[in-house]
Every structure is written in structure tokens, then in C-alpha cells.
Simulated assay, not measured.
Amino acid sequence: MRLTAYTDYTLRTLMYLGMHRDRLVTIQDIADLHSISKNHLMKVVHQLGLSGIVETVRGRNGGLRLARDPSEINIGKVVRETESDFFMAECFNTEFNTCPLTPGCQLRSALGQATGAFLAVLDQVTLASILTPAPGMAPAMREGVITLQLAP
């Protein structure tokens, strides 16, 4: 399973905003930290604003901030909203599936279960739970660099 860059940027944005709740953050702040395109982040932030997760403040001193408490932001839900599909193989796309093995394929079932398990783990994770630094990560946390940690 591989998440799209869009989902990756969405999660990085949320994590950065969660770590900087004391101030407004600019898209440029996040783009500079992660060395990613400001244009890509603008699309991410726009969608996060539409979903009600992020509040945007316009103007000279504007920026973004979380519109909800990090404990209310479910990572599984965010991933579902940002991923266009979870087609692990051609057979998951009923519109374009040409595989002749599909009717009795056990692999399709196993991949479907694996995807369900992946999302079930993420459903147990909130933004608040991944803002806790890993051992030895405190200096990096102060700089805004964190890693996604999933609870066991």
C-alpha cells in the first residue's frame, strides 16, 4: 500500500499545524520545511478548509490553523477523504477490470482484507496521538520535523 503525495502532504500539513497551535502558520512555512511545492500545498489546504479541519485567515497577517482539536481529527478518515481509490490491483476497479481470474480469485479477497486492516489501524489514530515525539526526536520536533507513528 502506498499513499499518494497528496495524502502525504495532507498529513504533514495537519501534523505541522498540530505542533504550532499557538500561532497562524503559512503555506510557505510548511513548503519550506518539507521542500515541497507551495502550489501543491495550496490545493491541500483548500480541501482541508472545505472539510472544516483547517481554518484559513486571509490578509496580510493571515495564515492557517486547525479548526478542531487534534484529538477530534481521525487519521483513517483523513486518508479515506484524500485517497482517490484503494485499488490494490486491477480487479478492484469494476469499470476497467479485464482479469479473467477475478471470479474465483483468492488474492483479490486477501488484498481487500489487507486494505481493510490498514484502514482499521488508521481508524484508531488521531492527530493528537501522532504529535507525541518518538524517543530522541525532541530537537527535531522543535524544528517541526516529525515522523508518523502508528500505535501498536
Score class of each variant (00 low, 15 high):
residue 17 L to G: 02
residue 5 A to V: 12
residue 45 V to I: 11
residue 66 L to F: 09
residue 148 L to Q: 02
residue 124 Q to F: 08
residue 143 E to D: 08
residue 73 I to K: 03
residue 133 P to Q: 08
residue 148 L to Y: 14
residue 32 D to K: 09
residue 58 R to P: 07
residue 17 L to M: 00
residue 13 T to K: 03
residue 140 A to F: 06
residue 11 L to K: 03
residue 21 R to L: 03
residue 59 G to F: 02
residue 122 L to Y: 05
residue 60 R to K: 10
residue 66 L to G: 03
residue 18 G to D: 03
residue 56 T to Y: 09
residue 77 K to Y: 11
residue 25 V to E: 01
residue 77 K to R: 12
residue 148 L to V: 13
residue 55 E to I: 00
residue 69 D to L: 10
residue 49 G to K: 04
residue 71 S to Q: 13
residue 71 S to F: 10
residue 12 R to P: 04
residue 58 R to T: 11
residue 105 C to I: 05
residue 65 R to W: 08
residue 3 L to S: 10
residue 68 R to H: 12
residue 142 R to Y: 13
residue 91 C to V: 07
residue 103 P to S: 08
residue 143 E to K: 08
residue 30 I to M: 02
residue 13 T to P: 04
residue 32 D to V: 00
residue 34 H to Y: 15
residue 105 C to G: 06
residue 101 L to P: 06
residue 141 M to Q: 09
residue 94 T to F: 14
residue 49 G to P: 06
residue 28 Q to H: 10
residue 71 S to K: 15
residue 92 F to L: 08
residue 66 L to D: 07
residue 40 H to K: 03
residue 2 R to H: 13
residue 86 F to S: 01
residue 109 S to H: 14
residue 10 T to M: 07
residue 103 P to C: 06
residue 96 F to D: 11
residue 143 E to T: 12
residue 59 G to T: 07
residue 4 T to K: 14
residue 36 I to C: 03
residue 97 N to R: 15
residue 11 L to Q: 08
residue 126 T to R: 03
residue 2 R to P: 10
residue 46 H to G: 10
residue 6 Y to W: 12
residue 93 N to Y: 12
residue 93 N to H: 14
residue 106 Q to P: 12
residue 111 L to T: 01
residue 44 V to Q: 02
residue 1 M to P: 12
residue 31 A to F: 06
residue 9 Y to P: 06
residue 26 T to D: 00
residue 5 A to R: 15
residue 127 L to P: 00
residue 88 M to R: 11
residue 18 G to Y: 02
residue 89 A to F: 07
residue 81 E to S: 12
residue 116 G to K: 11
residue 48 L to G: 02
residue 11 L to I: 14
residue 38 K to Q: 05
residue 64 L to S: 06
residue 93 N to W: 09
residue 107 L to I: 09
residue 27 I to W: 04
residue 115 T to G: 07
residue 13 T to Q: 05
residue 92 F to H: 11
residue 47 Q to E: 11
residue 3 L to W: 10
residue 96 F to V: 04
residue 14 L to F: 08
residue 142 R to Q: 14
residue 40 H to W: 00
residue 126 T to S: 10
residue 36 I to M: 06
